[in-house]
Design a binder for these strands. Sequence first.
DNA 1: TATGCTTGTATCGTTCAACGATACGAAAAA
DNA 2: TTTTTCGTATCGTTGAACGATACAAGCATA
Lengths: 276, 276
Amino acid sequence: MKLSKGNSEAAPRTVDDRLFLQSVERAMRALEAFGQQARPLSLAELAAATGMDRSAAQRIAHTLQALGYLERAGGGTGGQGLVPGKRLLDRSFDYLRMNPLVERATPILQELRRTTQERVDLSLFDGTSVIYAVRLQSKRETFFATLVGRRMPTFGSSGGRAMLAALPAAEAEAILEQSDRRRMTPKTVTDLPGLRAKIAEAQRDGFALSLEEALLGEVVLAAAVLDAQRRPVAAIHVAGSLSEWDVEAFRRRIGPLAMEAARALSQAAPEGLTPR
Amino acid sequence: MKLSKGNSEAAPRTVDDRLFLQSVERAMRALEAFGQQARPLSLAELAAATGMDRSAAQRIAHTLQALGYLERAGGGTGGQGLVPGKRLLDRSFDYLRMNPLVERATPILQELRRTTQERVDLSLFDGTSVIYAVRLQSKRETFFATLVGRRMPTFGSSGGRAMLAALPAAEAEAILEQSDRRRMTPKTVTDLPGLRAKIAEAQRDGFALSLEEALLGEVVLAAAVLDAQRRPVAAIHVAGSLSEWDVEAFRRRIGPLAMEAARALSQAAPEGLTPR
DNA sequence: TATGCTTGTATCGTTCAACGATACGAAAAA
DNA sequence: TTTTTCGTATCGTTGAACGATACAAGCATA
């Protein structure tokens, strides 16, 4: 049924949970439907995509529309399907504003962006996927498909690998195995031995480097940000173009900078407290 | 019958609506509570902030947590309140991805950013406020408090005024009057005559210019983006620093560029079809 | 023109999902 | 210590939500 996406829920939903609100789940599923079908959906399509009947879809769409979380596609005039509503941006804003990591990251990322003159990203760890939370594009950036909120598979993202390298081996292995290891470019490493080697490399170097694995012509280097328990929560990425960089030079020049930025962002563990 | 005891919403909802799902509204209100209180909320606080009892808050928090739209503040370990969940970023991503305006805007904004070397924003019209949907920061940007999803009052944003200038006078006037015209800086224009003059100026020039009205030391120029019905739907902003720009030079240099970009992004009305 | 299939919208009995009160142990605060 | 507040769990009641159904408008196809 549900393929392993970036699910990071604490408790797997037990079947009959007296505290679980069915209609709320339905509402969120309705919003999530647009993650799959990136086009305006009619009520019937929405019902089909979420597995509910027309009536339920009608009630939910009506409610979400009244609240501003769904909008008519035509812009209000012609009723030609539903699309996500602007209100969703507010909720995302709240998330970013409340995340202390994002807040603290901003000046550090800017400084890194200034010294490297390259694109700098902050991604958040979320199980089998990572989410881009901040992007500071480089001045000569031409490619811009990626937006805040975009998910990337953990296994295939340099930041993801940097974070896997900071996890206990068993956990990292579990994530690799749960992942849908799909190729993004011909150079994406997808086999388990290869990935384990990349992670070991990241453990040795203190940063992960991926070469054209997400986008051809691009080299990305990332270092993990740790919380007070020394667990990875985020990663700082620096992306450069192969038309301007030699890989070894990139590694030597950017690696220390990214690691220093990640360390500055990591929460220092209190003395005497060792991670269990 | 429980009539709204603590209905503190601003949204005018028609009262007894057989299709309106109470629990969905409660769930969204729970998420919205963090827009007001930007800190982790306990169940009791959440209940108080949304006007529901403890039990309702418990059920809703439990459900939203299971779905990933709420998270424990401590990072899962210590149970010290709730914060918005990462999943919210996905929904926001869906919105931006599905918005054809944002998609088409990206290359145009990049080009504008490249030629002006200044910060370029795209904001979306939403009644008395505008929402920033895209931000391309300038290379020397130091100030970064603003994130995607941030709302600004329409009356006090240069983009908002550019859009008001493109609206029928009655509608623009209605928005001005409904607005909470609060000062953001000492230079914010908040009186109706002054605002009408600024809008008239925008109609004359084809762009709006605001001087230190949102942030001291900053000059912002914006042009409205129109849809096929010639109604404003968005605005393109260019922001410069007064330490580097003379206002008149900024107007002369940036004005035409912003207008051209906005025109390129506007949907040309088909020939022979006049807006009704 | 008729016809068939959408679309969005509205109505209506039935019933179970959601309701609100309440209780409990742990942790934090006083 | 006591008191308060935290998160969590239970339970009988009931009305909010359910799903079936109907209808008009729009738009193709026949």
